[in-house]
Simulated assay, not measured.
Amino acid sequence: MQRTPPKTGLSQGQSVSEPDIPTATAGKADVVNITTRNKRQRLADSPNKEECTEQTGPFSAFKLELMDMLTTWKSEQEKLLRSWKDEQAVILSNLVRDVTELKRKCLSIEKSNAEIDNSMSFINEKFESLNSKVSLLEKERIEHQDHINHLKKQVQDLNFLSRQATIEVRNIPMNEKETPTDLISAVSSIGKTVNMEVGQSAFRDVYRIPGKAGLCRPIVAEFSCVNKRNEFLAKVRKFNKERSVNDKLNTQLIGIAGEKKPVYIDEHMPPATKKLLYDVRQFAKARSYSSWYSNGRILLKKDPTDKPVEIKSEKCLSMLAIPVPVPAPERVKP
C-alpha cells in the first residue's frame, strides 16, 4: 500500500537542517556524538584585543622587519636599476656616436675608393696607351736597327771597294823630313826583296796614317790596279812562308839602317774591321780555330776539312761561342 508523505513545504532535492547546531543541541543529553569547533576570531573583530596583541607581537615585529628589509632591498634594486639604466644610456649614447662616426668614415672611405677606382681606370688607360706606344717604338727600333746594320754593311762595302787596291805596311821607321817619294822608295824596296819590280808608276798614292807624334804610324800604299796589289801581297806571303821566323821580311832585308825589326804587310782595313779581326783571332786562339782575312772577308774554321765561316759581326762570334747541345743517345730497348 502506498501512503502520501507529509507536506513539509520543501521542494524536491531539499532537506531540513539546523543552521546553529550547538544552540539546537544545548540541553539535550542524548546528543553525544556531535563535536563542536570554536571559530578563530580576527584580530580586528576579537573582543580581547589586548590578549591577541600579546600573543601576535613577535610575529608582527618579524613582519615589520621583513617588510623593512624588503623595502630596503627594493630601493637598492631600484637604485641599481637606475644606475644600470644610466650606464646603459651612456653606453648606448657612445655606441650611437661611434656608429655615426663609423658611418661617416665609411662614407669617406667609399668616396676615397671611388676616387681610387677613377684614378686606376685613368692609369690603366694611360698604361695601355703607353704600352701600345712602347710596342710601336720597339718595332720601329728593330726596323731602324736593321736599317742601321744595312747601312753599316754598305759603308763597309764602300770602304772595301775604296781600299781594294791598297796595302798597309807596318813597322817602317819614320824620318823627320819624310816625303811621299821616300815612302814609295821603301815600298819599292820591299818589292825588290820579294822578287817583284814595283816602280813609281805602279802607285796611285802613298802616305802614312795620321796619328800621335812619335809613334811609328803605318804606311798606306794605293796601287793603280787591284791585280797589282794582289800580286804584291801574294809575293810577300810566299816570301815569309818559305823562311824561318828570323829570316822573314824585316827592315835589314829592305835596306833600312838601324835596329832589325819585322815588317808586316796586309790589306788596308777600316778600323771596325781591324777590331773585328782582332776579336776573331783571339777567339780562334782560345778555341784552336784557324782565322784569316781575304778580300774584305774574315773567315774562320775549326778543322782543315770544314767549310770556312764568314764572320760579319760580333754577333756571329757570340753564336759560335754558345755550345750546341748534343742530343742524348737513344736508349736501346732490350
Results as ranks from 00 to 15, higher is better:
2 Q>L: 12
2 Q>W: 12
2 Q>V: 11
3 R>F: 14
3 R>G: 09
3 R>C: 10
4 T>A: 07
5 P>E: 01
7 K>L: 04
7 K>A: 07
8 T>H: 08
8 T>I: 03
8 T>V: 05
9 G>M: 00
9 G>Q: 02
9 G>P: 00
11 S>D: 11
11 S>I: 06
11 S>H: 11
11 S>L: 12
11 S>E: 12
12 Q>I: 09
12 Q>P: 01
13 G>T: 00
13 G>W: 00
14 Q>G: 02
15 S>I: 12
16 V>T: 13
18 E>W: 12
18 E>V: 15
19 P>E: 07
21 I>E: 03
21 I>M: 08
22 P>Y: 04
22 P>R: 04
23 T>P: 01
24 A>M: 07
24 A>S: 09
24 A>W: 06
24 A>L: 07
25 T>N: 06
25 T>Y: 02
25 T>A: 10
25 T>S: 07
26 A>R: 13
26 A>D: 13
26 A>K: 15
26 A>S: 14
26 A>F: 10
28 K>L: 15
28 K>M: 12
29 A>V: 07
29 A>M: 11
29 A>Y: 09
29 A>P: 01
30 D>S: 14
30 D>W: 15
30 D>G: 09
30 D>R: 08
31 V>E: 03
31 V>N: 06
32 V>H: 03
32 V>E: 05
32 V>G: 02
32 V>L: 08
32 V>I: 10
33 N>R: 15
33 N>F: 14
33 N>D: 14
34 I>Y: 14
34 I>S: 04
35 T>N: 14
35 T>Y: 13
35 T>H: 14
35 T>P: 01
